[in-house]
């Protein structure tokens, strides 16, 4: 009789998965935290959860970033009770579009830093939310009256989040280097 054997995952594979899960948990925590903040305007959030997507992109690659953006919206919605509601659909469209735009910017725009990537991600996030609302819920161009001031706020939050992501990614890289030396 043939004996079945389970292959044991390699250590780097386990390390990569655990790192992705840690980032996912951080993103979910920030997603829930942002949902509990008082409203800073219609559909405006500081974008802290997007910062984690950006970290996943630079530390682990584009597949990790997209799966993290999807995962944090789904699991985060469980916690705040908005699964499959309009809020969920708006968050999913915003998060996914931001992740895809950040991937494209990171790959194809020369000499861009995480600040520029985050800036474009924040703008894409806001635009995608409005387009989703217009496409699925309120089919009125009057919705866009409120868009310009929110885009200005997105520029500010995107710039700050990008700077924070660069700072954190730099520190994580230094830590990794020092661990490897040990």
């Amino acid at each position: 009789m043939k004996q079945m054997t389970l292959s044991r995952p390699s250590l780097p594979e386990l390390e990569s998965k655990s790192r992705w899960l840690a980032l996912l948990m951080l993103a979910i925590g920030l997603h829930v935290f942002e949902a509990s903040l008082p409203s800073l305007g219609p559909w405006f959030k500081p974008g802290l959860a997007n910062l984690v997507t950006l970290l996943a992109l630079v530390l682990m690659g584009q597949r990790a970033a997209v799966s993290l953006a999807i995962g944090r919206v789904i699991v985060g919605s469980f916690f705040i009770g908005t699964l499959f509601t309009p809020t969920f659909m708006i968050s999913m469209a915003g998060g996914l579009t931001a992740a895809l735009v950040m991937i494209a910017a990171w790959r194809w725009i020369p000499a861009i830093s995480l600040i520029g990537v985050s800036l474009l991600g924040a703008l894409a996030h806001m635009l995608a939310q409005f387009v989703t609302v217009e496409f699925l819920f309120i089919q009125q161009a009057a919705l866009y009256y409120a868009l310009p001031p929110l885009l200005v706020l997105s520029c500010i939050s995107g710039w700050i989040n990008g700077a924070l992501a660069g700072y954190i990614a730099g520190h994580l890289d230094n830590k990794k280097d020092s661990h490897e030396k040990i």
Binding site: A111, S113, I115, G116, C155, W159, G162
Partner: peptide, 11 residues
């Protein structure tokens, strides 16, 4: 917080 020239042009 400075960013690169590309970032500033994008902004």
């Amino acid at each position: 917080l400075k960013g690169t020239w590309t970032d500033r042009v994008l902004l």
